[in-house]
Structures are given as structure tokens and as C-alpha cells.
Amino acid sequence: MLSYTLRRLFQSGFVLLMMSFLVFVGVYAIGNPVELLINPQADDAERLRATIAMGLDKPFYAQYLAFLGTASTGDFGRSFVFNVPALSLILQKLPATIELALFATMIAVVVGIPLGLIAGLKPDSFVGRAIMALSIIGFSLPTFWVGLVLIMFFSVHLGWLPSNGRGDTVDVLGIPVSFLTWDGLTHLFMPAFNLALFKLSLLIRLTRSGTREALLQDYVKFARAKGLSNTRVIGVHVLKNIMIPIVTVIGLEFGSVIAFAIVTETIFAWPGTGKLLIDSINQLDRPVIVAYLLVIVSLFIFINFLVDVVYSVLDPRVRLGAQSGGGH
């Protein structure tokens, strides 16, 4: 386990290094942030001053090495646009995104698994087919479009839910969260649902096919033959056995929910990191882009690691760090 963790850490470090280099090259190739930020009336002297202020006067490799030097001490540079440390800007926005992602995942799980179960148990009924139709729609419709339709219906037409922002927040352990106030909840619901829609459809389909497969297994037939109640057969025997792939997918997808919250955050003006990233890319705010991607990649690596660990707990046949075959 220890050697496994160490090896994973080493690999992660390498991934982060490569990623930072690629982003550096990419942003460098796109364009010059001075062109975007400076007042177009500025003369030579002013342009030079701004270029030096952002450290862009140095050759590319020197900029990258300087970044590596400060990054190793935890300083990812200051945002060109906001003039605040890039990392603190991201950490300030991250709770909002994580809250959104958690809430979306919760919706996906709470709604998706029962619906998938129903669709799996009664595949040919009207309800079962309607659920599958819904899941196809959830898969196919683009997020930005669904978001706008949700706003038009629930905010503009019915006036039930606010169309943008995060609402009132309360601090829990110094982190502002909105799900503890009614106002915050009303702000949270629509963007979370919009973000959840894709995962929801995924979970419906995953649960459905898992259920259908499990129903044909001998142990289910045996349980029924024993005369166990339907609830017990489904709740214990079926559900427990289909949970392993579902847990894995939820874990893996959680990272992508965070990373792909961008569209939802833009439409609902949700003050998270996704919106920050889009604005930073448009402004070529390199320190923020690099820091954001490093944080997200670290998060991915961490979640993957966690999933591996959980997996080994759930399934005793899996052993972490096993080089080849058995190894008992």
C-alpha cells in the first residue's frame, strides 16, 4: 500500500509538471495578454511597462522556469487581470463549484438510481420506456440550451426560482455554503439540476442494465424461490450487487462534474471556478489558467486514488499495488 501510494504520488507529480508546461506553451501561442488588457491609446513606454509588470518581457523558457521556481513554494503567480494571487482567487471560488457538483451528484444519485431500478424491473411497461426516453433526452440535449429553457420556464414564466447567482450563504468552518438557507437552496436547485441531467441519465442506464442482468442471476432466482419478499430481493440482493460499478462511475464522474460545470456556471452566473476559467481564457490570464488546471488535475488524481482505495474495500479480490497476478 505504501509503495503504491508513493508510486502514485511520483506519477502525479510528473503529470502536473507536464500539464503546466503544455498550458504554458498553449497560452503563450494563443496571444499576448498585453494586447487585450492595455488601453489602445497607450504609447510605447506604457506598453513596455505593462509587459514588464506581467513578466512577459523575458524569453519563454525564463518565464516558465521562474514559474516553476515560485510554484514549488506554492506561489502560482498573481492574476494579470485581478492582481491577486491566482491560487487564492481559485480557492475563493472553489467552494461554490464543489457545492454545485456535490448537489448535482446527489440529485443524480437520488433520482437516477430509483428510476433506473424501475426501468430495469419493468423494461416493457410504459413507465419503463418513458424513463428511458427521458434518459435519452438527458443525454442528447446540450447543457446550455437546457439551462436557458429552465430559466425561461421556472424563472421568467412561473417566477418560482431565481435565474442567477448564489443567494444567501452561511459560513460552515469558514467556507460559505448556500444549501443551508432557503434562498441559497432556491438558487442552487436549477443549476444543480442542469448539471446533474447528464449524470442522471448515465446512472439511469447503468442501473437499468445492471438490474436486468442481476435479475437473471441464479442467486436472485434462489432468493425468490426461498420466498423472500420482493422488496428484500430488490433492495438487498439486486441493489447491493449492482452498486460496485455505480460507485466507481459516480466517483470518476465527480471530477468531470467539477471540471465541466463551466457552461452551467456561465448561464446561471454561478460564481464558481468554471466561470472564472472562461473569463481568464478570454483575457489570457495565464497565472489563473495554469493554477486552475493544476488544481483540477490534482483533484482528479486524488479522486481516482480514492476510488481505487474504495474499490479495494468493496471488492476483496482487488489488491492495490499488486504487481502481477496473485500476490497473497
Binding site: 430559466i151 421568467v156 442567477n164 448561464i267 452566473a269 473569463d279
Partner: peptide
């Protein structure tokens, strides 16, 4: 002052009384 950079979100905010 709310920063609503997406044009559609801005219009929706006005229409919904936000």
C-alpha cells in the same frame, strides 16, 4: 451591480425580476 457576462443570462435576470 451583478456581473452577468452571458447575454442570455442577463436578459433572463431582467425578465425574472432578478
Amino acid at each position: 451591480f451583478k456581473m452577468l457576462t452571458s447575454p442570455a443570462a442577463r436578459v433572463a435576470a431582467l425578465l425574472s425580476g432578478n
